[in-house]
Design a protein around this nucleic acid. Structure first.
Lengths: 234, 234
DNA sequence: ATTTATTTGTGATAAATGTTACATTTAAGG
DNA sequence: CCTTAAATGTAACATTTATCACAAATAAAT
């Protein structure tokens, strides 16, 4: 197996397949689902939903990026996933009939489609294939979060950063062939890899000096994918 | 809200409700499900299933404890959940139609009920309530793993240990009123909180010297729950 | 019961990461 | 465009945690 394939396989272990919604539906079913969505938009920094809030529905991201994060103890925020175009989100709390266990904020101006809780639960009963897709997807997500725990708990900051840079680049470029680099606030990147902002800055600088990445203000470009990947296998 | 209630609420954020199987079923449905299980037992240290193995069915723990762990990079093993009596496990890989993403090993001699993949998928179609229970449960598990990420990535070893001691004690004593303490290998506890064995040992010694716990060989007893809980809120 | 293997404890040292405080750069608003 | 606020960079220092090497204790096997 080539290095590229190895990398792709690794990255898939950190990616929800949250764009499952239309998989396996007939054309008429797709239209039925689409009819239940309504457009909604969020300014950069605003929240799609809040921790402890009551779930109102689900969101399908049409454009933009959103971070899901939570804070269990103290004020420290942990980002545990970054959603991109095509991803469906907001269904966990809704389905488990709990309050939101996490909050979700737009990283950039964002457009989405919204479906109310009632409509979502209705369509789930109406189209059984959807329910099975959801089960498959939730099961996959379990693996992704377990992998995330494993990476964050067992590896140094260097390795965590190397991995998440690769993950983010692939996520950011999901539907855009032109590689625009990874544009993200330092604090967010730190909250994602479980580091302080200062410490992340130093590690990032190291990477730059080693020619692994280039940095222009907020945007990080990966120059040497192979190099980052090799860090993971040492 | 009292401290005890606060603690209970916190602990519930780290507990799968994997004993959902019979919830909401009629008596005849329960019997139908039970008929499809067959007894199986595992010696301490043996594996219920292996990472990368092909899923064969699901397990319901009748007695004993099991750890679910994985190793993404290198040889470091991360335990991300410890299952106890009453828990159902092994359905994630089966449902997402992937290979096992993790391995599961008995921490002590263990007895379980086993249901084959075919029977599990069959009963899921036969009893729709089961499918919905599964969705609810998977959604809840998502929150638990997100909380685990947050704790492990954002807190010091002391705090991680304090929390997991409280979690483990509650898990170990789920169905046993007499508090037998937490019997666990140091290496396993270290793999659970994301620390080295030596480092864990030192932190544990500190806890002992502060009167928070007592240690008799492999078994840890919590002496001051309040004290451990307060560590989390500083 | 005695030997052997495994697990655990300990101490010295090095490495990684966090903390604090402030300078500098970049973005946002009028 | 200018002003102010927010984000980022930097450096010295403290703290936490890992690593290594080995002793002690416990568990397993004969």
């Amino acid at each position: 197996m080539s290095h590229i394939e190895d990398l792709q396989e690794l990255l898939s272990k950190f990616d929800f397949k949250s764009n499952f919604l239309y998989e396996g539906l007939t054309d008429s079913q797709k239209i039925r689902v689409q009819e239940l969505f309504e457009p909604i938009s969020f300014k950069k920094g605003s929240k799609l939903f809040y921790e402890d809030g009551i779930p109102t529905g689900v969101f399908l991201i049409e454009s933009g990026l959103a971070k899901k994060s939570k804070s269990i103890i103290g004020e420290k925020e942990q980002i545990f996933y970054i959603y991109a175009q095509g991803d469906l989100l907001g269904y966990h709390a809704l389905l488990s009939d709990e309050r939101y266990q996490d909050s979700c904020a737009a990283l950039v101006d964002l457009t989405a489609s919204f479906m109310s809780k009632d409509n979502f639960l209705m369509i789930l009963e109406e189209i059984p294939a959807l329910k099975m897709s959801l089960i498959i997807n939730l099961s996959h997500e379990f693996g992704v979060l377990a992998n995330t725990i494993s990476i964050l708990a067992q590896n140094s900051q260097n390795i965590r950063l190397a991995l998440f840079l690769l993950v983010l680049e692939s996520r950011y470029n999901r539907y855009s062939p032109n590689n625009d680099g990874i544009s993200i606030a330092r604090q967010d990147l730190a909250d994602l890899i479980g580091a302080t902002r200062e410490s992340l800055g130093r590690t990032l600088k190291e990477f730059k000096e080693e020619g692994l990445v280039s940095i222009k203000s907020k945007t990080i470009h990966i120059l040497n994918h192979q190099g980052l990947y090799q860090m993971l296998n040492t």
